[in-house]
């Protein structure tokens, strides 16, 4: 019988077990830290929304210009990116991720309701888009729609894009879906009180929001004019 170096095999087994266990432990620590960051971000947004609601109540009699930048689209966008990353790294069915997503959906709904109230009070046109998607792998158009809306939201901060996982089991979200009678024919967009089904390209969105297109064109023209001005030689004194 040859020497099998059994003691070395056992030691190697223990060392590898420790390495694997440490990898999982460290990885979990990082994941927990991320979840804590998201949770504190959600808490901050929640506080801000509460503050906005209070401010709204206090200023109910005040002029519309005071209601300018109370809402939280930028923070919600960062939060959405982080949640999307967590979904990819921990999995869409991870209970922590699902809970964070529910809370995020609730915050979006509250922000949306505040927006609606402000629009009614100030008689402005709705610039909010409620986007319902599925990430169960059955909706390739949802992926494309997500890219279009992300780009649209980045270009026009005044347009609020709220994204909801249609299949997320959450009473507030399901009420919103039932209220607007949104069918599982995804992607679906709720703009004002109108529900639109299927993929909408950027051009289609500009047809719905022509003012944003005009604004963008105006900005482009101004930019080009400024560029031309800067390229013209200046007179020497």
């Amino acid at each position: 019988m040859r020497n099998t170096y059994l003691q070395y095999h056992i030691t190697a087994l223990i060392i590898v077990f420790l390495i694997v266990a440490t990898s999982f432990f460290v990885s979990t620590l990082f994941a927990d830290k991320r979840i804590q960051e998201i949770r504190s971000m959600e808490d901050k947004i929640s506080m801000d929304i509460l503050s906005a609601e209070t401010q709204f109540a206090l200023l109910e009699m005040a002029a519309c210009e005071h209601l300018g930048d109370t809402f939280l689209s930028q923070e919600l966008r960062v939060l959405a990116q982080r949640l999307s990353f967590m979904e990819q790294s921990l999995g869409v069915e991870n209970p922590e991720v699902v809970n964070l997503k529910k809370y995020y959906s609730l915050l979006q709904i509250k922000d949306y309701l505040l927006m609606r109230q402000a629009q009614e009070k100030c008689d402005t046109k709705p610039l909010s888009i409620l986007y319902f998607y599925s990430n169960e792998g059955d909706c390739r158009d949802c992926i494309r729609q997500g890219h279009v809306l992300s780009q649209f939201g980045e270009l026009h901060e005044e347009a609020r894009v709220y994204a909801f996982d249609y299949h997320l089991s959450f009473p507030a979200l399901q009420t919103l879906i039932a209220l607007h009678e949104i069918e599982p024919n995804l992607p679906a967009l709720l703009i004002g009180d109108q529900v639109l089904y299927g993929y909408l390209a950027t051009e289609d969105l500009y047809k719905i929001f022509p003012d944003l297109l005009k604004k963008e064109e105006l900005e482009k023209e101004t930019e080009e004019a400024l560029k031309q001005d800067s390229e013209q030689p200046t007179d020497a004194f």
Binding site: I19, S23, F24, V26, S27, F30, V78, S89
Partner: peptide, 18 residues
């Protein structure tokens, strides 16, 4: 600070690095 959030820290990465 944002970049740190998006670094892949799965157990697989630690095992590969080891």
């Amino acid at each position: 600070s944002e970049l740190f959030f998006y670094i892949n820290t799965s157990p697989m990465i630690f095992l590969v690095l080891t």
